[in-house]
Amino acid sequence: MNLTASTLPFWLNLTLNGFFILTVFLAITHLPWRELKHDASLQHRLGFTILVLVLIWSLRAGVSEGLGIHFFLMTGVHLMFGWSFAILLVALVQCGLIVFGVESVWALGINGISSGVIPILVTFYCWKASERGGVYNPFVFIFGVAFAGAMLAILMSAVFVSVIFLLTGLYDVAQLRYEFWAYLPLIALPEGIINGMLIAAMIVFKPHWVRLFDEKKYYGTK
């Protein structure tokens, strides 16, 4: 989701920006800096991912005043890099959009949370639920975590955005139902398919690139 900061109250933008900055700081403190410094392949994958996300997040459809929708791809990003790298990527992509004039500085928090933090949290808990279930099958990882997790991420982000709109009085329930929620199936299903296909390809050809995919558990390797 993408919200225009100018449609929101100043106090709300300030609060969300502060929360997002704290989240980024927390992620930075948990980054494996030694691995990042010495792994050139990881550096290249991160750089390429930033470019792809800047492009994808720049392509958005405006469905209502102050609100646009776009693909997240954060489920696949989180599964590939882990939560700390994923949060950092969200921050860097948001900064890139600001530099290119696509976003405003005040939109850093609201869009970083709705398009990044919430999808990452949803994916994390989908992955944890899969781990607790103990069913280590690659198809469970693809369909239960990547595919379903990506769709659920869209829905939970939509709930967050809807609450913001209702609390600020920008839209009422009827407007959200017909001007926002009616379009969600058009992006939720493709989001699930794209992330599912991405992770499926990765765990087949480059499983070691998917940080949250344990080859020993899912493939029975030693």
Rank of each mutant, 00 (worst) to 15 (best):
L53E: 11
L3R: 14
L16M: 11
Y178E: 11
Y178D: 11
V210F: 01
I194A: 13
L31E: 04
I56K: 05
P190W: 08
Y219P: 00
V24I: 03
L166Q: 08
A5F: 03
G169A: 05
S114N: 14
I164Q: 09
N195V: 10
T75A: 07
L152M: 07
M151H: 01
V204M: 13
F139L: 14
V52F: 12
G47C: 11
V163L: 15
I110F: 13
F71P: 06
L97K: 03
G66W: 06
W127E: 08
W33S: 06
M1T: 01
S115T: 12
E65V: 10
Y218P: 01
K216R: 08
L189V: 15
P190E: 05
A200M: 01
F19G: 15
S58V: 15
V163I: 15
V145S: 05
G112S: 15
V135E: 08
F180T: 00
S41F: 06
K37H: 12
T4I: 13
G220F: 03
G66E: 01
L176I: 06
F205P: 02
L121H: 06
H78S: 12
E215C: 10
G149K: 02
G116T: 15
D214A: 08
L79C: 02
G196C: 01
L53H: 00
R132H: 13
H44Q: 15
G192W: 01
L167E: 15
F20P: 13
P119A: 04
G133V: 07
Y218V: 04
P9G: 07
W181V: 13
A150T: 05
I98V: 15
A150K: 08
N195I: 05
I21D: 00
A148F: 10
N13H: 03
F48H: 11
V99H: 09
I69R: 03
F160C: 10
A182S: 13
L26S: 00
A40F: 12
K128G: 03
F72Q: 08
I118L: 02
V77W: 09
S115E: 04
V63M: 08
M1W: 13
V105S: 12
W33M: 11
M151Q: 07
T75C: 06
L170S: 14
F180N: 02
K128T: 03
L89S: 06
F100S: 15
V135K: 13
V93R: 00
F180R: 00
I98A: 06
L88G: 04
V52S: 10
E35I: 00
L22T: 02
G101I: 12
I199W: 03
T7E: 06
V105W: 09
T23E: 15
S64L: 11
G76D: 04
L12E: 09
L12P: 09
H70W: 08
T49H: 05
L89E: 09
L184H: 06
G96Q: 03
S130I: 10
V122N: 00
L97A: 02
L31A: 00
A188W: 02
S114I: 03
E179C: 05
S115P: 06
D39F: 03
G47H: 05
C95E: 08
F139H: 13
G66F: 00
